[in-house]
Amino acid sequence: MTILVVVEHDRGVLADASREALTAGRHLATTTATPLDALTIGAAADAMVAELGRFGVSTVHQAHHDVLADYGPEAWGAVVAAAVEQLSASVVVAAGTDRGNEVMAWAAARLDVPFAANCTVTTPGEEDEKMAVTRVRWGGSLLEEATLTGAVRLLTMAHHAVDAAPAEEPGRATAVSMTVELDDSVSHSIVRGRVERVAGVTLATAPVVVGGGRGVGSADGFAPLEELAGLLGGVVGCSRAVTNNGWRNHTDQVGQTGTRIAPTVYLACGISGAIQHWVGAMAAKNIVAINIDPEANMVSKAGYAVIGDLHAVVPAIATEIRRRRGT
């Protein structure tokens, strides 16, 4: 029996979300006195073995196969399913990333076992084969307490639900090669090509985001927001209402079905603050709401607010910045 953590990495560098999954997995392993194993898929995994040891992993299983040269959801899911069978894993933990959830769903489908996505809390049950989990719904605005019952339980950890922490007594992990048989059909969904992202500030990484909602009123109405974002080295975001009206591209959308942002400052202009938008903005360290309605949800949730018409307030802020800079 083992608790297995499926690790994601970028050319040998462990993903932050996987460190959190390892921390959650180790907690389960410690409380149930079960060994903690890790599974890496594909090449360039040797560099992580020492760090995995520091996170409490005893054995790192390195799966290799020609098909695994690049990512493929079915192939990766098949590897996880094969590892569960070879190692008699009782619980499998992965990161609640797009990839983590996709791979675990494929593994769960192959094994015909239950899978709980985006957990925040996991508790070993008093009965064998049954555990309690709390998981995220509505992008984090609701939580679901659930039970996960099965000889094998699969789960992913919601990003930021636990703080990643190495084991108090770091151990040494042993790397072993794992041979998996993969049928040809899994190669149907392998990445065929990539376009690397152009370097630069993105909505997800910008230190300042100037967001506009329905209150902006039109596509042209975003010009002052663009100007302010430019002055602050930030980018413009928007709410779903804006995208649905065709005023901005969906790539600018902040929210549950758009981008999750985490800037130092989020200036939310003319945004009411519906759940859909809020869950994408709530990781912002500081929020300044600019809204004509003092009762707007965004105003009551923000740390700071200006009550007024964004069409007057936003240009005034830009003017004040330029005045102080003498430009």
Binding site: V288, G303, Y304, V306, I307, G308, A312, V313, I317, T319
Partner: peptide, 11 residues
């Protein structure tokens, strides 16, 4: 919520 002001005067 800290109200920074009302209208453009809040700039």
């Amino acid at each position: 919520t800290v109200i920074l002001g009302r209208g453009p005067d809040a700039a």
